[in-house]
Amino acid sequence: MKHLVLASLFASAIALPAMADYTIIAPANPGGGWDQTARTMQQVMQEDGISPSAQVQNVPGAGGTIGLAQFSSQNKGNPDALIVGGYVMVGAILTNNSPVSLKDVTPIARLTGEYEAIVVPAASDIQDMAGLVAKLKENPGAVSWAGGSAGGTDHIAVGMIAKAAGVDPTKINYIAYSGGGEALAAILGNQVTAGVSSLGEFEAQVKAGTLRLLAVSAPERIEGVDAPTLKESGLDIDLQNWRMVAAAPGLSDEQKAKVTADIEKMAKSENWQKQLSDKGWMDTYLAGPEFDAQLEADVTATQAILKDIGLVK
C-alpha cells in the first residue's frame, strides 16, 4: 500500500505531458479561497486528464495584485499560464493604486461565487433588515459592522447598504477583521451590532440558531436559504463575491479559445461539480462576452462605492 501511494505520487509527478501543462497562479497564501480554487482546479485537471501535470504556484500579496502584476509581466503570450482571481482583486487594484489591472490579463471565465449575508447575533433585538436600517439612520456610529479587511467585499457591501439607505457611506462604523473566522467570533460573542460576510461563513451558525440571517445580496432568493434579498428589503444591491480564472495577456484568438475550451471542460465535468458541492461552492460559471460585460460593470460599480466610502480618491 505504501508502495502504491508512492508509486502513484511518482507516476503523477514524472508523467510526461502530452497535453497542455498549465501552471495555475494562486495570488494568495495557501489556505485561502483563491488557493483552494487553484488547487481544486489542479486536482480536477489532473484527474480528468485535461492537464496531467498541472502545477499550482502561490504568489501572495496585496489582495492578489502582486500575483497579477507578476503574472501579466512574465507570461505574455504564454498559453499554459493561468491565474485565479476574484472580486476582491477588483477592489484591491483600486485601493492599492495597482499599476496592473484586470485589463492586463485575459479573463476566461467566472467559476464560482458567493453572495454576501447580513446577520446579527441571535440575542440581538434587531429582527429584520428594516430594523437594522432604522438603527443605522438614527446613529450610524452606534451600528458596528464586523467583516473582512478594509476595502474588501464585505466593506463594499456595507458601503452599498448605507448608500442605498440614504446614510453617508463615510460615516459607517466598519470593523475590519483579518478573516471570516475572527469576524464571526466577534459577532457570536456579541461584540458588534451586525456582521457581513459570504453566506457560507454563516450558514452553519444560522442553521444552529446562534445567528439571525437578515438578508442576502443575491438578485433573487436563494434556494434553501430562508432570508429575503436586500432588494426585497428596499435596498437595491446585487453583489456577488466571485472567483474567476484568467489567462496570460497577448494570446491569439486560437490560444484563447483553446484555454476557454479546457476550462469549460473542467467546469462542466462531474468531478468539478462534485468538488463544488463538497465544498459548498455555488456554480456561477460564466464565460465569453457575457463575463466580460459583467466584469466591466463590476469594476465601474466598485470604483464608485469605494470613492463614496472614502478609500479611493
Binding site: F10, A13, I14, V56, N58
Partner: peptide, 10 residues
C-alpha cells in the same frame, strides 16, 4: 527533484 517533483513545491 524531491521538493519540486515529488512534493509539488514551486
Amino acid at each position: 527533484v524531491i521538493f519540486a517533483k515529488l512534493l509539488m513545491l514551486h
